[in-house]
Design a protein around this nucleic acid. Sequence first.
DNA 1: TATTCGCACTTGTAAATACAAGTAAAAAAT
DNA 2: ATTTTTTACTTGTATTTACAAGTGCGAATA
Lengths: 237, 237
Amino acid sequence: MALKEAPQYRKLYEKLRKLIENGTYARGDLLPSENELCAAHHLTRPTVRKALDMLVNDRFIIRHQGKGSIVQGQPKGIGILSLSGTTSAIGQDKLTTHIIVKPNIRSWEQAFGYEISEQDKSLGCIHIERLRLINDIPVFYDITLIPNLNLTRFTSRSFENKSLFEILRKHYQIQVKGGEQKILAIKADERIQEHFRVKRNHPILRLDRKMETNRAGFSFYSQIYCNTMDYSLIGRF
Amino acid sequence: MALKEAPQYRKLYEKLRKLIENGTYARGDLLPSENELCAAHHLTRPTVRKALDMLVNDRFIIRHQGKGSIVQGQPKGIGILSLSGTTSAIGQDKLTTHIIVKPNIRSWEQAFGYEISEQDKSLGCIHIERLRLINDIPVFYDITLIPNLNLTRFTSRSFENKSLFEILRKHYQIQVKGGEQKILAIKADERIQEHFRVKRNHPILRLDRKMETNRAGFSFYSQIYCNTMDYSLIGRF
DNA sequence: TATTCGCACTTGTAAATACAAGTAAAAAAT
DNA sequence: ATTTTTTACTTGTATTTACAAGTGCGAATA
């Protein structure tokens, strides 16, 4: 089964998104006009517009009739509380990742309080645990459970300093479209105390999340512990 | 200034959305095919597809190539983490409100870490503090700061068991369009211990929010303390 | 000088057309 | 009867064309 090539509008979306993410286009800049993008990439306007529609949807740009497409910058907009993964929520600070439990396949019974389908249950799940540090301070500990269907070579990929969301999007055409989350404040248990190097009774934020994707019936789950002492979570809504 | 008529694709979106919301199309049903919708509404496929794109985006439907558009049903409520105020986030449980500090006008210097404009600063702000109980358990304590411009009779209104968001929308045509929030876990301080009837070191969730409205330049601010022991915050994103 | 007007640009909406690709059921072959 | 192939649908991608409408700037006008 050969991988189908990504459609043109999607390729353009990825290109422009990258240019915004790496700062080539900064907040407030105008993107090239639709006609210029057409000429530059040998596409027609509806195709270009579809790519821009996606960027609007992800809050990378806004458009003004008669004016142009205005870069909004990284959608801090979609901080960890609204949509994106951790990596894009951090911004330019140094984010390092330690894999505590390497991707491995195991069975599951439940997923942090969320119901899972019988099919997912029968196939088992990919299990990852990561500790993430911002500027060398441990801030996130996350456990991720992904249904084990058809993600070839997934367990052998490197996740160090890479965004899980980005891997899913680029290699498997899976985009997180939204989801559900519970959020609560708890005391640090022993394992968390150790990872975060904090005392007992230290208040910790916990998120239990279900991520829903563009692939029908495909959801995955994560539980995130956050030490908000030095870095609080920021999000737009 | 006459109101411009809504575009065709938006009208179709509204129609189909209404049909899903009132149950004419139920979860699992197939929408009429794109060609049938074209014929029925005298539109062409690109226009129909644009309406369906919007429904996909809002998660009312998903589409399957070769199959059709499958109704997903109503996207579930948006909890406190995404957009709405507390009242609509609770659902059917009993929510009671105690006004701890009645609406009063005072000066402000800052608003929970957010920058405020010079104009807002010069006019002072309306200050409210409320304790909210779900099924008689104290769960939220919130402090709200609203710039004091032109909200006639605001301080004399009753806020018992009423939604602040609703008052702003109905009486002042102010709608919250989005905003920014910081979220962190803290230990209960003395005042919170008392209100929530919890011990020292009890983990508490704190949200610092800036609410942006449809009125240009008008934002207001709130700080919310949550006891997530019995009720965790649930939201979609 | 200050204002108005027009032009050249931008994005927004909409149609008509073509072909690719996935799905499911009918039709044909085994 | 079972399997395979065909066929008639569905949505997905992409082009071409046309006009509407908002923006900003420079030239013409008062």
